[in-house]
Amino acid sequence: MFMRIDHIGIACHDLEAKIAFFSETFELEVVAREVNEEQGVKEAMLHIADGEGGGSYIQLLEPLSDDSPVGKFLARRGEGVHHVAFGVRDVTETMAKIDAKGVRLLDERPRHGSLGSQIAFLHPKDVGGMLTELVQAASPDEMAKKRS
């Protein structure tokens, strides 16, 4: 069902400071920046490596407001891992399979994600307390456009 770990989402107070840290310390390159109003975040995707079915990334997330999901997370838990995202071939099909196994979906249908992907989230209480994201990567042509 899962092809790879697509990304690890890390909540932070200061996106620019965290980008500098991950770039300088781990020599990771920022390949995309985006403001996602729907999710209430400014984000940066830092490329780790490419593999079967797409790349792996660190996603840094700064809330646009204190009452956004990431803002609330930071208030409760502080900076750190917010979610783990798994790459899948077909997010809609994977959602149906997981739903049929009794795991609650936070999304009824896929929505826009980073780098042109389609995403959906699973309820953390059904996945051992871990917010879990499913990611269907954009086609290689779409990825090339987003990364250039």
Rank of each mutant, 00 (worst) to 15 (best):
F2H: 07
M3P: 00
I5F: 10
I5A: 01
D6S: 15
D6V: 04
H7L: 03
I8L: 15
I10C: 09
E16Q: 15
E16G: 10
I19C: 01
S23I: 01
E24M: 02
L28E: 08
L28D: 09
L28I: 08
V30Q: 13
A32K: 10
R33F: 02
R33W: 04
E34W: 11
V35R: 13
N36V: 06
E37P: 00
E37L: 03
Q39Y: 09
Q39E: 15
A44C: 12
A44L: 09
M45Q: 12
L46F: 04
H47R: 15
H47Y: 15
A49R: 14
A49W: 02
D50E: 15
E52I: 11
E52Y: 13
G55Y: 04
L60P: 08
D67G: 00
S68N: 07
V70C: 08
G71I: 04
G71T: 09
G71F: 08
G71A: 09
K72T: 04
K72V: 06
F73Q: 05
F73D: 05
L74C: 05
R77T: 10
G78Y: 14
G80C: 05
G80W: 09
V81P: 05
H83G: 02
H83L: 03
G87C: 01
V88S: 04
D90M: 05
D90F: 09
K97V: 09
A100W: 05
G102M: 06
R104K: 15
L106N: 02
P110E: 12
S117A: 12
Q118L: 13
I119E: 10
I119W: 06
I119F: 04
A120C: 06
F121R: 00
F121M: 02
K125N: 13
V127I: 14
G128L: 11
M130V: 15
T132F: 04
T132L: 06
E133L: 00
L134N: 04
S139V: 00
P140F: 01
M143K: 13
M143G: 00
R147I: 12
